[in-house]
Structure formats: C-alpha cells, structure tokens
Amino acid sequence: MSRPGRSLLPALLAMPLLLLLVVPVAMLVARATPDALLGELRNRETLSAIRVSLLTSTVALAVIIVLGTPLAYWLSRSRGRFAAIAGTLTDLPIVLPPSVAGVALLLTLGRAGPVGGWLDSAGVRIAFTPAAVVIAQVFVAAPYFIRAARAGFESIGAELRESAVIDGASAWELARLVLVPMTARSLGAGAAMSWSRAIGEFGATIIFAGNLSGVTQTMPMAVYLGFENGLERALVLSTVLIGLSLVLLITVRLLGWRAAAPAS
C-alpha cells in the first residue's frame, strides 16, 4: 500500500536545504578548470599554503590523538561532577566562534598574556609561528576526536575490562589488547573528523598566528586573502580543500561516525 502523499512531501521539503548545501560547492569546483588547477599548482605561494596546511594539521592531529585519547578515556570512566564539567567544557570549542577562540588564545599565549609572557621570557615565541597555527587547530579540532573516542570507550562494558584485569592484564596490556582494538573505528572516525576540521580552520588562526606565506599562511587563509588578487588561486585551493574534505568525510562514513554520537 503506497501513500505518495507521505513519501513525497518530506522529499520535497528536503530539497531547498539540500540544494543550498550542494550547489555552491559544485559551482566552485565547476569554475576550476584543469588548466588553472595545473598552472596554480606550480605557483610557489599556492604550494606553500598547501604545505603549511598539511604539515600543521598533521602535527595537530598527532597532538590530538596523543593527548586526546587519555582525556577521552578519563572522561568515559569518571563519574564525578568535576569530570562532568570537564566533559562539557571539552565540547565548548565546537560551538565557540573561531574568532573568539583566536582572541582567547592570543590573550593567553601571546607574549602579553600570562602563559605566553612567561614562555617569551624563556625565549619561546608562539604567536606568528607555525606552532600558533598548530595550537589553534588543536583547540578547534580536538573536541571531535574526544567525543568519538569517549563514545568508543563508553561502549566497552565494565565486565570486559574487569575480566581482562582479573586475567592479569596490566594497564598497558588492557589499553593495547582490549581498549584500542575495540575502539579503533571510533578513534579513526574521530581522527578523520578532527583532521578535516584542523585543515579547514581559519578564524582562530588568522587572529592568533597571523598571516605569512610559507610560515603561517594555510590554505583557507590563502583562499580568503588571495581572493581579491586572483580568483584562480582561491578556486584551486578551494578545490583542493573540498577534495581533501570529501576524502576525510568518506573515511569517517566508512568507519561509522555513529560511534561518535554524543555520549548518553
């Protein structure tokens, strides 16, 4: 028994937003001719933007995985009020405007800030360096990995962990033989999501890290600032960014992003 009224209406209502989400991206890619792509890909500034983006986002991802995994595990195990507050705070950068993140980072880690001032007197300079780009990316992208990893860890029953410990597993063995293999998909999906967010990061970076070709100028920044000089470069870099993002999103899909649904 088919009810066309019921099946057609939602599909019709779905169209406007779907078109809005898809058409601009398609237009952008359609504007980038292969000739322009190849030509721009030989340009030094374009290449250095791609290099800076890939380098910084990879380092950011490594930092996120190394520091985010223990944090996510702790959040998944702790039941106290402190952990609940910490869990909420780690989600904050997802909803915070990147410009706010940039100002916050600059006021903290800039040399006029408390932490940055101390580092500066020790000879460590952060603002206007690739390190600032990495820190901005970690700040905005880490929550995605933490959420996914936390949900993964929470899906492992307490009995399983306890029986592993009763069988004589050390903490390291527990992590290596039980936790990581069982949550590999969640961790992978979270990592891909974080990486794509890190590559796309712009607002916090331009405030905290500034803009210098070959040093701190990432692909999104080159798109933004290069727009008025030459649409070509913006188009090429946008196309590269869209391609990368699609690959990462498909990865997330294949790994089952559902694992990263908010922990309940």
Partner: peptide
C-alpha cells in the same frame, strides 16, 4: 615581518596588544 594582516586595523590591534 611576522605577519601580513587582512586590513590596517588588524595591524594596529596586533601592535596595541603588544604581540608585535
């Protein structure tokens, strides 16, 4: 030169904040 800012107001901000 550590940064080429998007407009002159951003240049002033970076100096006022003492970052540059």
């Amino acid at each position: 030169t550590v940064s080429r800012e998007e407009n002159v107001a951003a240049v002033v901000t970076k100096v006022v904040l003492d970052e540059a």
